[in-house]
Structure formats: C-alpha cells, structure tokens
Amino acid sequence: MTDERLAAELKDALRSGDASAAVTAARKALEAQADPLDLIRNVLVPTLTEVGKQFQEFEIFLPELMAAGDAAKAATVILEQAIAAAGKASSSLGTVVLGTVQNDVHDIGKNIVSTLLSSHGFRVVDIGRDVAPSAFLEAARREKAEIVAMSALMTTTRPAAQSTIRLFEEVEARDDFKIIVGGGSIDAAWAKAIGADGYAPDAASAVDLCRRLVGR
C-alpha cells in the first residue's frame, strides 16, 4: 500500500501540472517502498481521469490538461524504470499508434487524445499530422501496436481514413490491429461505413473505447 500522505503529494503535483514536483513525489513514494504499479493504477490513472473529467466539463482548459499530462508522463518514466528494475512486466495497457489522416493538419484534438491515453496507461506512438496511409501501416507494424487511431477534422480529408483502412486490407494486415477513428468530420455512421472497429466522439470516449478494445 502506498503511504496516503505521499499519494496525496503525487496527486497534488499531477493536478497542478508540476512535472518536477510529480517526479519528486514519485521518487519519495518509491523510497518509502511503494509499489510502482500500485502508484500508476491507484494514483496516476484516477487522478488523470478526474482531470480529464474536469476538462470535459470545461472546469479547466487545455493548458491545465497538458500540464497534468506532462507531469503524469514524467512520473510514469520514474515508475516504469522501477517496474523494469524489479523484473516485472510493464504497466502499459497496450500500444496505440495515433495520427491525423493525410492532408489534415488539425491536430489539437489528436493531441488531447494522446494526453488522455498516455495518462490512462497506454503507450502512445504519436506519428503526427498529415499522415500517409503507408506511414500508419509502417508505424503500426514497427511498434507492434494493438490499436491504430486516426483523426480527421475536415469533411474533405476524411476519405483518407477510408484509404488507410483499405491499405491495411490490401496487405492483409487488417486483422492484426484494431482501427478506430474520430474528429470533427467523422460520426458513427461514417466509421461503420468505412469498416472501422470503433468511433469516439471525444477524447474521453476514446480512452473508454481503447480500454474496451484491449479488454481492460
């Protein structure tokens, strides 16, 4: 069990988006013999879930969410090192390759999804914006991803999501990955029509969807 005072210190650091305080708190907790996996599951993830909810309710804004995400990422590095040193398996829920589709340069939504997925225990490989179908495929294979997540803001760019899925089918890699879509121009009907495995209307739902898809 993690010392409650140290857990509270870590939570405060995460909520206030103070990365160096989060690292200090994580180190102190480890020195006090806290289980790093327990810290991730019972401190980091619930705190970031709460921060994510505050963001969805517009009680806080993107800068605060980003800062909390950065703090969680910094603390996770320390905790993952401790897990690896103890010879235990990583806490990661799975790997998500994430990007905006070809010709779409709008990536703020994608960045929010990246922050929330990371802070919920996924390993996120963010391959950026305006990503060619072949680059999604190459990254998914290289990173041994469980999930490929694509975002499209513009009605005029969303066909690229379909082209990407088609490429995965053509090279017989479709069954190797779960492919999900989101973004302003996409809805559930379009996602179904192009054969995606899931659709998320917002960042919080993207986390739930990914958890469902990896069975966690």
């Binding site: 070809q102 010709n103 513009m154 009605t155 005029t156 760019t157 969303r158 066909p159 690229a160 379909q162």
Partner: peptide, 17 residues
C-alpha cells in the same frame, strides 16, 4: 464544403480536387 464530386469522395491533393 462539398465532400464529393460526381458522387465520389474527393481525394484531397488529387486531380479530382
């Protein structure tokens, strides 16, 4: 913003655009 041309989805950056 019309997403199709002659009923087909417009591929951005292509001659169809």
């Amino acid at each position: 913003s019309v997403p199709t041309y002659l009923g087909e989805a417009i591929v951005a950056g292509s001659p169809q655009e």
